[in-house]
Amino acid sequence: MSTVTNEKTNRGGFKLSDYQGLPSTLCKGCGHDNITRNIVQAYYELGLEPHNVVKTSGIGCSSKTPAYFVHRGYGLNSVHGRMPSVSVGAKLANHHLQVIGVSGDGDTASIGMGQFCHLVRRNVDMVYVVENNGVYGLTKGQFSATSERGAKSKIGEVNEFTDIDLCALTITLGGTFVARGFSNDAKQMLALIKASVAHRGTAMLDVISPCVTFNNHEGSTKSIHYVMEHDIKLNELGFVSPWEQPTAEIKPGEAVEIPLPDGSHLIVRGVNNNHDPHDKFAALQLLEESRKKGEILTGLIYIAEKERDLNTAMRVNNPKTMAQMDEADCRPPKEAFEKYLNGFR
């Protein structure tokens, strides 16, 4: 944690250190720590009120990371694979909370697959980061469900089963924000995290985040080297906050400018392609094609920014939060109470 005095403050009057957390206890060089750094930077630059930040997680290396960012926010490290449900509960209890859930590939694609799917279909307004390394780290190197068929484990075993593509899955479930990042690509990740926060609904960030201890060897399909060799950028991203000016003018047809609910804009410029991230079929096709070629497609893959989120659909964003409701908010008047009971005579 930074202890620099006379630190600069952001628009909200908060210092970068307000968004930092405890020192990481993950392995040196872990991809997850890069993601943490980008979350800190993005939240600082967005000027979010740290006390309204809620950090949820399940179990695994990734799920430890909420302790390493936004120490002035509130963390809830829950049980394995169940981060989605506690996040929904927190968001319903207090819709002002800015929820970020951090999960891993074991947490999301195996034990928590059910909750993940239902979170997506409910479009809960939150950032959902999967720190995806294809391996169970804390239990020392077993394959996870995002590990590709044919990938080799550290002890030389070959994975016989197909991988689950979380991006494709999320799109088919009706996901409204689907992106893939790489833990070494800070620039792309920063824009994606900011856009995820601005998006109203579930923003799923599948970040390939190599495990330097158990999955960084020859034969691994999630090693730093392998990912760098196979990373294909789908688009260049620019995030423009409401108070910022776009750095360069966009010519028609050159890029897509997506307005987000908080007044910010995401500028998406295809890299050697004209992919419109609103095109669901094209997104699925791109994912399947890249999978066939053994490529790792990164960038904003799909967005449907106008869908209703859970709280809006349920009409539960009252002037007061659920947590603030008192007796008068909860209890019908005496006459109504007695009239109801009278129906049972």
């Binding site: 809620v54 949820t56 809830l76 829950s78 049980v79 169940r82 989605p84 449900s85 506690v86 996040s87 929904v88 509960g89 927190a90 319903l92 209890a93 207090n94 909370l97 059910g114 909750q115 799917c117 239902h118 409910r122 859970l310 709280n311 349920m314 009409r315 539960v316 964003n317 009252n318 002037p319 007061k320 939060t321 659920m322 947590a323 603030q324 409701m325 908010d329 909860c330």
Partner: peptide, 30 residues
């Protein structure tokens, strides 16, 4: 406000319903 002062989610299973309850309780809702 066209809102309702009660949120109910018919969950995917009981694992999710208790998670939702504890998440909401943690954040201050009954």
């Amino acid at each position: 406000n066209h809102t309702i002062r009660f949120a109910d989610v018919q969950c995917e299973d009981e694992l999710a319903s208790i998670g939702l309850v504890l998440g909401a309780g943690w954040a201050g809702a009954r």
